[in-house]
């Protein structure tokens, strides 16, 4: 547990080199999830490469295509409160502020937010099987206490959910993830970044070993007029989502020109449904159309007992959030549910 080597990298190349030198070395940014897991003996890195001092990663800048680049080391709180984000991408701001606590948002990096591990009870208990933690050992959640677990995109091997709020908004906004590794740089569309569990639930995302997230690009379109992030949970703050919904609408009068709906707390990744979004295009922005969209999104939803309620809750949340997006002022701080 304690035997990790700690090294600080001052630039990206050094960081990537340090990672590739040794197996089981991890990048350390905010540390809010990695150190949590390490203290529980759920991860045992042989080395930590502290990337906090890498020049240029803790920035936010406007891009020539009208979009914005969020540095991987830029903090969650700084992102949420940045004037560009507040004005142009208020959905992202809302989603970030719905997650964790003020202290954690001050510590957590944007890159690290994408790499959070699940909060599945069984993943967090080293004394029980878990395919994500210990491939091939089984998934106790399926027949166990699965109140917080997934209803969409599950597999026989894993029904864990991805816990981020920020990423639900990033998914809705079609963000791009810029990564760099030993083989060079590449850009991953947000929808392709996280993965469904399938038969490899140990893999949360499609990063290659040793690749470092350097930044996240937000496209020009920010849906600043009609957006809403709704997070439903077991207490009013500082709890992971039972269900969350990011809704972004582009309206022409009452008609929906473009719609994005992403769900959190329901799957192994932020959940998007192109079919539902296509359905909404050209339709009136009203309760019945949001309900129909919800039915499309949830058509393959499957409960595992304790989480059956999430299907009904998700439908209500999608409808309600669609209506809230029509009047973003109806949202209260911290993504509180009621006006």
């Amino acid at each position: 547990m304690n035997n990790f080597e700690y090294k600080q990298a001052e630039d990206i190349a050094t960081a990537i080199n340090l990672i590739s030198e040794q197996d089981n070395t991890k990048f350390l940014a905010g540390g809010t999830n990695l150190l949590d897991l390490w203290k529980y003996n759920l991860t045992n890195p042989s080395g930590l490469v502290d990337i906090n001092r890498i020049h240029g990663l803790a920035e936010i800048k406007e891009l020539s295509n009208g979009g914005v680049r969020l540095g991987a080391n830029f903090k969650n709180a700084d992102t949420a409160y940045h004037p560009i984000i507040e004005n142009k991408y208020p959905l992202l701001s809302k989603a970030i502020l719905a997650g964790a606590s003020a202290q954690i948002r001050n510590m957590a990096s944007n890159g690290g937010n994408l790499l959070q591990r699940t909060r599945c009870y069984y993943f967090y208990d080293p004394d029980v099987p878990c395919n994500k933690r210990n491939p091939g050992s089984g998934c106790p959640a399926k027949e166990g206490y699965n109140r917080i677990h997934a209803i969409l995109g599950t597999s026989d091997h894993c029904i864990a959910v991805f816990p981020s709020d920020m990423c639900v908004a990033l998914a809705a906004l079609n963000a791009l993830v810029n990564v760099e590794g030993a083989e060079g740089k590449r850009t991953i569309a947000f929808a392709d970044f996280h993965r469904l569990p399938g038969d490899r639930p140990d893999l949360d995302n499609n990063l290659k070993p040793g690749e470092l997230i350097t930044s996240i690009d937000l496209p020009d379109k920010g849906f600043a007029q009609n957006y809403s992030y709704l997070k439903l949970r077991d207490r009013h703050s500082y709890a992971f989502a039972l269900v969350s919904v990011a809704t972004a609408l582009e309206l022409d009068g009452e008609m929906i020109k473009d719609a994005r709906i992403a769900l959190g707390g329901v799957a192994h990744k932020p959940w998007r449904s192109t079919e539902a979004e296509n359905f909404l295009r050209g339709k009136s922005a009203n309760e019945s159309n949001f309900a129909a969209a919800a039915d499309i999104i949830l058509q393959d939803a499957k409960g595992y007992g304790h989480n059956d309620f999430k299907i009904a809750l998700a439908k209500k949340a999608i409808i309600r959030n669609g209506l809230m997006a029509l009047n973003p002022q109806s949202q209260l701080p911290g993504a509180k549910p009621s006006a």
Partner: peptide
């Protein structure tokens, strides 16, 4: 100048 959690921070950081 920022409030953080000292438990999830390594001193060396």
């Amino acid at each position: 100048d920022k409030r953080i959690l000292s438990c999830l921070t390594l001193a060396v950081m």
